[in-house]
Design a protein around this nucleic acid. Structure first.
Lengths: 224, 224
DNA sequence: TGTACATCAGTGAACGCGCGTTCACTGATGTAC
DNA sequence: TGTACATCAGTGAACGCGCGTTCACTGATGTAC
């Protein structure tokens, strides 16, 4: 009898075979728990997440997640940090391209829609520990990429103008993701988030012009 | 002994005074429960809301909320409907003004920030019953006002262009509120949401221009 | 190569808690006469 | 004006459930010799 066979998980089995044991040490419990938690958040929402449900999904004892992460906050913190890493990777790829701002905006939206489990946790300091060094580093890295892209995309030299543009662009893409995920956007936009986001980008041009028309002269940005 | 005195709530009392009874029928339990629920959501988040906590805040028996609203979904549905009513009232006030789009955007943001308890529930069909007739009517009314304002503000005659502009404007204000409420926006924006939103509006002009520059000619909106 | 031992990842039984729901009830209110 | 009665808003005791946490434990792994 090979060790392979012995170590395989065979929970459903009830035959004459002596109860096969899965290895006592999981080997990669951390990843398994995070994956289980993300899957659970995607199917039931972050509010419903319980340590016991994570354990059930990962096939370990109910005390294992708390043992490994210290508690629910620890799980959320790990998810958020990993999420910012994934986001930075996606958006960073576009840096330098001539249409980097638009491409980054679409990358942000695609990330949020494809990874709602991560996305939902990343912006919720009430769930995770925002001061965790690993999380803070990952978040800062993602922000740097975003700011740099907005800076070159909008030709904003003035730091205040850059910040305002970054907040505006971020609000727009973030709001789009949130409304999309919660099913609030009109159904006519279709089911492809990238196509819908492109439509919204077209709309953004009209909104920018209307804003310019409606802001009083002294409220308008001075430069450019 | 006046009825006033008899009816007053005196829970802490243990003296010789005969136990004063508060009226068996509350009189306005519905409003009291909604107010209690909104207050609880604002202090602890919608995820933590329990029927028992609502009852505690309202000073009624723990079974009263379920008795009145049928269950937690009923409470959330009532909150959402009332929230859309409040939003429509606020944004509707600005219709017709020359700067209606900007004013409506600011009104949306102020509403979201001031009434986070309502705001959080309104966009969560997983919490409330979106098909409830009262809720649907209130929501449609609020949407009509928003669409009309965006239509006149952006001069969008084409229905598709109007929809795109509405989605873009909505994403922007909605994203701003969500990021503001979750504490994710940079601290330099200050503590006054209206001032911060005005800054973001300035940034929106630059973002609109950058979007126009980066969209390829065939992706650009044809009219205007 | 073999043995002894420290480490610590993961277990599983037990606990107390707050929750939603049920249900027989209480008592205020409104209406019919 | 007074009486009888139906209605139903709100009560409170009781229930079972899933949760997080604790803690003595088990057993795989790595290291010292």
């Amino acid at each position: 009898m090979s060790t392979e066979l012995v170590n395989v998980k065979m929970f459903g089995q009830t035959g004459a075979v002596p109860t096969p044991t899965r290895p006592y040490h999981h080997g990669n419990l951390r990843s398994a728990l995070i994956a289980a938690a993300v899957a659970e958040i995607e199917s039931a929402g972050a509010a419903r997440l319980s340590l016991r449900e994570i354990a059930r999904r990962a096939g370990v004892s109910h005390a294992a997640p708390a043992h490994h992460f210290g508690g629910k906050t620890g799980v959320f913190t790990a998810i958020a940090a990993e999420g910012f890493g994934l986001l930075a990777e996606r958006t960073g790829r576009r840096a330098g391209q001539p249409d980097a701002l638009l491409a980054t905006a679409l990358a942000y939206i695609e990330f949020g829609v494809e990874h709602r489990g991560y996305f939902e946790v990343m912006w919720r300091p009430d769930l995770h520990d925002a001061s965790d060094p690993g999380l803070a580093a990952a978040r800062d890295r993602a922000f740097e990429i975003f700011y740099a892209t907005v800076g070159t995309g909008t030709d904003s030299a003035d730091p205040d103008a850059l910040r305002d543009a970054a907040v505006a662009a971020w609000s727009a893409v973030h709001g789009f993701v949130v409304l999309w995920l919660s099913g609030n956007l009109p159904a006519e936009l279709g089911r492809d988030p990238a196509a819908a986001a492109l439509s919204a980008a077209r709309g953004m041009i009209a909104v920018g012009r209307a804003t310019e028309r409606q802001l009083s002269p002294e409220e308008l940005p001075s430069s450019e």
